[in-house]
Amino acid sequence: MDNNNDKISDLKKKINSIEKSHQSESMPKKESGVSFGFKISTELVAALVVGVGIGLLVDNYFNTKPFGLIIFFILGAFAGFFNVYRVMRRIEKQ
């Protein structure tokens, strides 16, 4: 019996060490430069698209022709920069 327990604790140690080595090497860097650039640019463009969309909607509803578009375009651009900043920070953390 004692022998068996020894074996089990031995096995546990082995499993733990393997799991630890797995954790350190998980999430490897698989991204190429192209996909990285693409990620950044879509983040930037998507926020602009949403900003312009909201701006046009606001203009339609409230008849404020150019101003809604102008304001929300600028806000959208800021949101795009924020997105890029966030993606960069996430990558820095890894």
Partner: peptide, 12 residues
């Protein structure tokens, strides 16, 4: 800005 950033998620 945060709301626009949130709404841009499905698009990107």
């Amino acid at each position: 800005i945060e709301v626009i950033s949130y709404l841009s998620r499905p698009i990107s």
